[in-house]
Design a protein around this nucleic acid. Sequence first.
DNA 1: AGGCTTAGTGTCAAAAAAACACTTTAAAAA
DNA 2: TTTTTAAAGTGTTTTTTTGACACTAAGCCT
Lengths: 256, 256
Amino acid sequence: MSISPSLNPHVSVDCVIFGFSNETLRLLLIKRTVPNALTELDDSYYALPGDLVRDNENLDEAAARVLKELTGLTGIFLQQFQAFGDPLRIAKAKDRAWLQGVRQDPDARVITVAYMALIESSKVEIQPGSFSRGAVWLPIGEIPELAFDHNEISEGALMALREKVQIQPIAFELLREKFTMSDLQALYETILQRELDKRNFRRKMLNSGVIAALPEKQHGVSNKPARYYVFNRNLFENSPLGFVNLKMEGSFTLFN
Amino acid sequence: MSISPSLNPHVSVDCVIFGFSNETLRLLLIKRTVPNALTELDDSYYALPGDLVRDNENLDEAAARVLKELTGLTGIFLQQFQAFGDPLRIAKAKDRAWLQGVRQDPDARVITVAYMALIESSKVEIQPGSFSRGAVWLPIGEIPELAFDHNEISEGALMALREKVQIQPIAFELLREKFTMSDLQALYETILQRELDKRNFRRKMLNSGVIAALPEKQHGVSNKPARYYVFNRNLFENSPLGFVNLKMEGSFTLFN
DNA sequence: AGGCTTAGTGTCAAAAAAACACTTTAAAAA
DNA sequence: TTTTTAAAGTGTTTTTTTGACACTAAGCCT
């Protein structure tokens, strides 16, 4: 076994927070402001919300804390998907300037554990605090250059989401409690980036048992009102792997 | 953004190394010896091979280094699957004794990034070095109590393997270059812990295109000699996601 | 009343999955 | 040399799932 390296890394968590509004999948990003030595103006750029892991907390707790500090929400879907630890992930001048601003050793390496969160975005109330200035929901197609390797992390989260959604019934986390079949289909189409057949979609979803119809329908819409459905939560919280008979094309089926 | 915690954690990688021999899935574990203050004898116990991440390397490199130091192998299947960072994961007296032995601060927290490796176990030649004493292949059903939270990590790796094997053609990494259809089926049955129908299995595998038949057959077996097959590597190294038309029951298919 | 918009519905053909048992080949034993 | 033993290899049928496809229903607006 080898000796300790000269300088222990910092360990942080970063949260890729997904929301869905206006038929668009979005990320909740925070704005950072750093002094620009050349122009004497402040530069600003976006980053994933994150923080160093504290001594007394585990990784999940740290991620939940970050999420709560920003959104005020607890008990939401939050899942670790990958750790990022390239020694050069903190290289840009902006990033180093910002790290100095928060009084960390700008030469220290930071290894981060990335989480993805799925939230119904209307529940979010941006909390006053260090994160809050300039927190925005940006469509996943319009993400600018982010701090550190946060673009790479976001890409990874999106890929992880696309895979997960085909294995576990988690898409519901992005919708309101009650939703229409069309809402759900639009969400799947957005995540998977392809169109789905309405009739086949309905059939699959209903046969799978993951959703239950409510007696209630829409009111005040200028067309045929749609029925509301709810996610059948207890069905999956009790099943060991959260697996459902909800099949997705392009994936795989065991032999028999 | 909050201030730095008082003490930076150490960051390590641990490798859950899978092998397959005698129809059994096994883990390659290393033996650790620590002095027992009471008995004046040495206690020994098993652990996953791992090490601190060095200053100049990224996480994948650290894991590859650990793997190479132990087995002498490079270029093998090695994939990160989860980070573990409970502040209490180093709590057992044995673990603290061992950490003292390697001259680390026994109070320092260690966050570890866990990798799973799939190797054809006959390729392994245990390398002389700190890991080597007492490295053993133990069947996954007979894993004793391990160091730290390594039992939990091993369990996680096994679950990750079961999922991965249903999505990507990686099981081959555990077999020799040439293998029979029965070898392959036995491997899948072991990993998935259920029996598969011989005829359906063959049909699926051949139709999927992931394997190619060789002209060659077994020699010197006291029954009908089996044909050899090879994994069709280039087919998947060129495909973006490594996805195949190999379906697995219990998983999912997109809508249409 | 007619137009507009979205919800909601069923069938059929093709493909995939699952169930199922006997023959073949080679070595070993009798 | 014949028989036994052990594992390899092979097709068909039924059932289930998928995918393609177009019209009617309901409510608001003008």
